Amino acid sequence: MSRFSLKKKSRLLLNVQFQTIYNKNYKIHTKNFLMFMYTNYLQFPRLGISISKKNVARSHDRNRIKRLVKESFRLVQHNLLLMDFIIIVKKNIHLLKNNKIFFFLKKLWSYKSKNNVLNINRL
């Protein structure tokens, strides 16, 4: 049961960690998200979330989206490659319902799973 938990070590928290991944310039664009990724040399994947006030103005909407991203990552983290991921949310995603956002996240994670390595051009 503990393999489905999201521990603090599974999150990117420091600005230095974010900048390192941004500088590597390996990313996936979708309509609603931008995902940066970089191989880490740890035994687990890590997640960082960036939602600007310019894209999602209300804090309760930003928090709702963060909860959905964390939950989707928590459910698939055991299938992901050992990489650091940063999810950047694009404009107007707060207008979507939770199940739609979760669907898009699930689709995004499926392209970075161990079974489907780097099949990104179909997004």
Score class of each variant (00 low, 15 high):
F44P: 01
L80Q: 03
V89Y: 05
K9W: 05
S2P: 08
F44C: 07
L68N: 08
N25V: 13
R46F: 13
R11A: 01
F44S: 10
F85G: 06
F18R: 08
F33M: 06
L12D: 11
L6Q: 07
K7Q: 09
L96H: 12
I93F: 07
Q17K: 14
L34I: 14
K9D: 02
K66P: 02
L108Y: 04
V69S: 01
L82R: 06
L80C: 09
F36Q: 12
K112F: 15
K90Q: 04
Q17T: 08
N79V: 00
N79Q: 11
N25Y: 12
V16C: 05
N40P: 11
I93W: 04
N119P: 00
F103H: 12
F104I: 01
M37S: 10
P45G: 10
Y22L: 04
R11N: 04
K106A: 04
M35I: 15
L12G: 09
L47S: 03
K27F: 15
N40W: 12
S110G: 00
R64M: 08
L81V: 03
I101Q: 00
K66N: 03
L82K: 13
W109F: 13
L14T: 13
M35F: 14
L96G: 04
F73A: 02
K54S: 09
L123C: 11
S110Q: 10
R62M: 05
F85R: 11
L47I: 15
A57Y: 11
H94G: 11
I86F: 13
S59L: 11
N115T: 06
S50Y: 01
I88M: 13
S72I: 04
N55V: 11
F102T: 12
K106I: 01
Y111L: 14
R3A: 12
L75W: 02
